[in-house]
């Protein structure tokens, strides 16, 4: 276990590098790497949300693609109704305003997480993994069969939502908008994780019975966390639908849940920055491998296997160990 000092140092170094690098990205990135970084930002919101329940709360959800996908579909469906000028379900007007669609997506995915979480949290262990997967599959099949919104083909969002009169077609502008959402989300998450609520949640993971004895109702706290996590994943999905200008059942597929989980693991479960590094590593790896070979999934699988079997704690723990080594070398 690295010392608290070393961990602090690693965190500070990581954060400083991150902030400077993120602001400077558009200055030296070409369009494909800018798009890659934007995707990393967006996916890391979903990965960090999953890490919130998984790493801090100990709830292994294999169904977060449901919230991610619903977020995307809310944006897509609102856009379709905006374009047709028809109300959704007869009374909800469509919209192409980012400040309307994103909050709507967050609320809808939060409600979905409330329903799924309220039912799933009655179980635990492998049953919890499977029931979250089952609910996500239900949502997946529902949208596949929903012909009015493209069925298997999904919804093409012809234009990115409008936001404060900015030119959202410009990829650099879009990048900074996404960066803004990302920063707000990460700050909010930081506050939640380090609030008393976050502490209770971590306590639940360590020893649920003891926390119950202290007077905290595990079910309620876990459910709150699950809803917050679902909202985060929904936010990520809504931003992704805006970035790709596309929402499809692919976003809801269970392999997406597994991919999000992989990002969390690669970076390190239960650490704040871990999911960000993990998402970056996953997407860079994926993009690089896909450019090298048609059979990139083979290598992804091997790397995944090596990481799970060979390391504990992912990238973040590795960096903390490195920082600890450097400290020791100095002293």
């Amino acid at each position: 276990m690295p010392s608290p000092d070393a961990r602090n140092l690693a965190r500070r170094i990581g954060l400083a590098v991150l902030v400077v690098a993120l602001l400077a990205v558009p200055m030296f990135a070409d369009s494909s790497s800018l798009s890659l970084v934007t995707r990393i930002l967006i996916y890391s919101i979903a990965a960090a949300s999953l890490n919130f329940v998984l790493g801090y709360g100990g709830m292994i959800s294999l169904g977060h693609a449901a919230f991610f996908g619903i977020g995307g579909y809310v944006v897509g469906m609102l856009f379709v109704h905006h374009a047709d000028a028809t109300p959704l379900m007869g009374f909800i007007p469509g919209s192409n305003q980012l400040l309307v669609t994103v909050p709507a997506a967050v609320v809808v995915s939060g409600l979905l997480a409330l329903i799924i979480g309220a039912l799933s949290l009655r179980t635990g262990g492998v049953q919890f993994i499977m029931i979250t997967l089952a609910f996500a599959q239900m949502i997946f099949f529902f949208f596949v069969s929903l012909k009015a919104y493209g069925g298997e083909d999904g919804i093409i969002v012809r234009r990115t939502n409008e936001f404060l009169g900015l030119n959202m077609r410009d990829r650099v502008t879009l990048y900074y908008v996404m960066l803004g959402f990302w920063a707000v989300f990460m700050l909010a998450l930081w506050r939640v994780v380090h609030s008393s609520f976050g502490t209770v949640l971590r306590g639940m993971k360590q020893n649920e019975r003891r926390m119950a004895a202290l007077g905290y109702a595990p079910y309620r706290y876990k459910l709150y966390a699950f809803v917050l996590s679902g909202m985060g994943a929904g936010l990520s999905g809504a931003l992704m639908a805006n970035f790709l200008r596309f929402a499809s059942p692919d976003m809801l597929h269970w392999t997406k849940s597994a991919a999000l989980m992989t990002m969390v693991i690669l970076g390190g479960v239960g650490s704040f920055l871990g999911p960000i590094w993990g998402t970056a590593a996953y997407l860079v790896l994926e993009t690089w491998l896909a450019a090298q070979t048609e059979y990139w999934q083979l290598w992804l699988g091997l790397i995944l296997l090596a990481v799970v079997l060979g390391t504990r704690g992912g990238i973040n723990a590795g960096m903390a160990r490195l920082a600890a080594l450097m400290m020791r070398g100095r002293g």
Partner: peptide, 23 residues
């Protein structure tokens, strides 16, 4: 290991097997 590691390692196996068959 915990369930999480098991899910991920065996998910990796799925990717590997599918690609080997494709290859």
């Amino acid at each position: 290991r915990d369930h999480l590691d098991q899910v991920l390692a065996t998910f990796g196996l799925i990717l590997i097997f599918n690609q080997i068959i494709t290859l």
